[in-house]
Amino acid sequence: MRSRALALPMAAVLALSACTGALSDTGSLLGRDTLRIGVKADQPGLGLRGPSGEFTGFDVDVALDIAERLGVEPADVEFVEVTSAEREEALREGRVDMVVATYSITPARKTEVTFAGPYYVAHQDILVRADERSIDDVRDLAGRRLCQGEGSNSATRVIGERGVAARLIEAPTYSECVTMLEEGEVDAVSTDDLILAGFLLRSRDAFRIVNAPFTDEKYGVGVAEGDLSGCEAVNRAITDMYQDGTAEALLRMWFGDTGLDLVTSVPQFEGCS
């Protein structure tokens, strides 16, 4: 009789402890058998979808490596295209477990998403035609035609913040900017160096990266807001990735021939919060 009287409250306590346990793990990246990872589909060298639907690029390889270190085999990783505008929503709605998509960590975004990493600190830089000799840093853009993709503010950083009087020309995408650069319709394209390096791979001999970095873009791994243990595990994976040389190998494999100065030691993490 005593044991039956106890059974009910015991069950309540067990349920309670199960609840509090579950609360802290809700939506965590850890302990999954499969992972859905959001990547870009139109960013050569970083995240690009091929004709048969497979994704390739530095971000894709980084994502696969992190997943493997979290115990998820490449075969169990599903890649999902995310555009820049929908990354927060995709995480919030649980459409993806993780985002690795040239996703710059900013304090404002940190209020909506928990960021592991950065796994790389990219910098805004300048892409010019290979035969261009008179552009060596951002100030040399004065009076030159600078192309900016729609919805981006890379030119503001040159013209507004650095007071360099470049002539702004807008194109729908950076891909089109690069085409215009090749055809001589603009003189320079400025955005994240890894993105420029990816475009440069399209026609290696046509372009040159100036190597005059002037901002920090901390590429982070977005996880569901509040998934601190998942975030910390991703940071450990990134640490290992740099310590065993995988990160350097991936950077060299994707961007080694682009003339870009690559940093191959582990970046300063943002901290999970």
């Binding site: 601190l228 940071n235 450990r236 030691s265 582990v266």
Partner: peptide, 19 residues
């Protein structure tokens, strides 16, 4: 580029353990 990032990550990691 090397020492400060690693030092910072060390603090973060030990903070994560405590958390």
């Amino acid at each position: 580029l090397e020492l400060l990032p690693k030092a910072y990550n060390l603090t973060l990691e030990s903070g994560a353990t405590v958390r």
